[in-house]
Nucleic acid binder design. Sequence first.
RNA 1: CUCGCCAUGGUUCAAUGGAUAGAACGAGCGCCUCCUAAGCGCUAGAUCUGGGUUCGAUUCCCGGUGGCGAGGCCA
Length: 587
Amino acid sequence: MSADPKVLLTDLLRAALKSVAPDHADITILLERPKQASHGDFATNLALQLAKPLKRNPRQLAALLLAELPPSPLLARAEVAGAGFINFTLATAAKTGVVAEVLARGADFGRGASKNARVQVEFVSANPTGPLHVGHGRGAAYGASLADVLAFAGYSVTREYYVNDAGRQMDILALSTWLRYLAFFGIEIPFPPNAYQGGYVIDMGRDMRDAHQDRFAGVSVAQVLAGTPGLPAAERKDDEARQQREEHLDALIANAKRLLGEDYAWVHGFALNEQLGDGREDLQEFGVRFDKWFSEQSLFDTGLVERAVSQLERQGHIYLQDGAKWFRSTAFGDEKDRVVQRENGMYTYFASDIAYHLNKYERGFDRIIDIWGADHHGYIPRVKGAIAALGLPPEKLEVALVQFAVLYRNGQKTSMSTRSGEFVTLRELRKEVGNDACRFFYVLRKSDQHLDFDLDLAKSQSNENPVYYVQYAHARVCSVLNQWGGEAAELAAADLARLANERELALCARLATFPETVESAADDHAPHQIAFYLKDLAADFHSWYNAERMLVEDDGLRLARLALAAAVRQVLASGLALLGVSAPESM
RNA sequence: CUCGCCAUGGUUCAAUGGAUAGAACGAGCGCCUCCUAAGCGCUAGAUCUGGGUUCGAUUCCCGGUGGCGAGGCCA
């Protein structure tokens, strides 16, 4: 099939460049798509760039380059314009050729050649301490789309979820579940305000009772509360009261561990598996799949945390102070040093994160992409610092920060705290708005842009969501193709020279930019570019659809137009698939 | 205090350093005897401020102003 006009054009320009300015023949040639149709299909600022080093007038240089440009059937016109641009207008056949290419390659149109590079994308990685909320939803949609775009662009992609199954938060969840469970046996302990309040914890307590009756209930209120400092008055919000509440919670956890003995691990595991399973199911329904669920606990079990810290220690990046082990991250640009192991011997979360990244490097990925919430931005210098301290190349790690999705209900910001239990779950959002609209809406913003998620708007006016605009275009093509009822082979043989009007050529030009849009979205970690592209493609199609009929009497014209429509359908479907959005055949 | 994100029509957002800054919603006027009106056409309407780099800046750099967010021996 016809090679990419962009590549061919670059070669032509290179040839002209060699005779006009042999000393600068290796300069990068940029071909851009002009915003304005009257400026042709491609434009280059080559003459403007060369004007200074060659001390020549840019317009004269452009004219010289044009004069040396080898003749090609590709071009209908090439001319000097503006300050010294060269505008190229492709021959009609070069524009419509893309239709045949799309039909020939099908779902592979736009797929990049293999990059021979392994990329790991780690995302969501939410604590399994409660349902995923709308903030996690954004990370999930963004990460899944980015991973799919990277894979389509030619990378070998591993999608990974880091499970925080070690640490205090999980203990708090286990305790919360146990306390709710005990309440079913009349063992009423005042529920700590800083434990997990959500109704799902009560559900887990009930499930635990249904499965195991009173197996974990052989305790008294006094035993559970033994040695706790008690709770300060609810209205007290000062630091002292807060600290007392945390101490109360820790004492309860210690009591639970002692009273339950070996059963504690069972309760802990029960709560973990419930929440993990719930999250996995939620994500799967959302079209978000992972290749690997990586356990934080496994880092301790395999001794990797210890190994990572001792490796840092051997290389002199660790010092002792106040009984704790500190990583000297200031030596790597961090604003203060960080504790990796507390006085009580417990490793910090940071320590397991160092170990986790050591593990990522040891698995041999060429690129490692971490997708974090924007609140973790301060975390980047210390993690990169630790990587450098371990003697690994920090530039291999790319961190994409996803800004918060701030949720508005009735024009009011909604609280997002997991512990308070006042949040809108991803599941709830999906149910109200629909998976397709959710996925599309989430990636309609650059990831580093704050996203105002107006629930009322998303729920009540979901028909105005741009996703339907794109899907509708797809459904319209399907409907027409169905009414025609012919075979794909007929379309492949269509005489594309019959595509001649402006809207048809504009549509062809749009189709031709799909591969470079994919490439750009992958390079910039910006799946939103796909969403915007699809909106533009759908707009071009709707406009054409209203202006011209496809099912016309003229056999040749009909086939040519149907071929174009089928190509549009294919690219819409491919693009929507990258975003995890369905492409319905009817609406 | 330190750091991050942001500032574009009435509103929500686009724009690899390029030419006349694009859409959508909202406003106004039109289009279904015609392949799906969840659609299309037309009109009005915008780059916070001051410097710098550049042939050229919405874009890059520095300083203001304003908005949002984050900073733990929590995870």
